[in-house]
Amino acid sequence: MVTRKVEIMVGVFMLLGMLALAVLALRVSSINTWTTPDGYSVTARFENVGGLKPRSAVSAGGVVVGRVTDITYDTETYQAKVTMTLYNDFTTFPTDTSAAILTAGLLGEQYIGLEPGAEEEYLMNGSEIEITQSALVLEQVIGQFIFSQANKSGEEE
């Protein structure tokens, strides 16, 4: 027959399993990024979003104030349309806030950096950020650099 000890050991085993799963969910994957807090959604159009992905961070002054929720391509303006959720704690961004796609470190993750403007009115649910700056694509930058160098040496001759 099953003894008390065996039952207790199995119970401990099951508990350990649940604990391990909880550790994985909370500590390893951080559940907060999965269930995003309430916020209002704002859109912005970019020429090029680079490596931006849904769930990338939206930050202002280095502090995460929201998350990218959706990225689509607008076939009318031929621009990428990024929808992001800004948390309800940060509702006072002026309407002339500018958005730029920045990179954390030289090769790190890309994120949206917001630079507040000076307007009296604030961004609301559904507003669009008008002033945007695209992602820096390393190949293009290098290409431009080589091109300008070649031009320069051409003029000298």
């Binding site: 085993f13 399993g17 604990l19 391990a20 799963l21 550790v23 994985l24 500590r27 390893v28």
Partner: peptide, 15 residues
């Protein structure tokens, strides 16, 4: 039942 639990423990301990 046991293998998923064991795998979860393996992952947590491995991390």
């Amino acid at each position: 039942i046991a293998v998923p639990i064991l795998a979860a423990i393996f992952n947590a301990v491995g991390v």
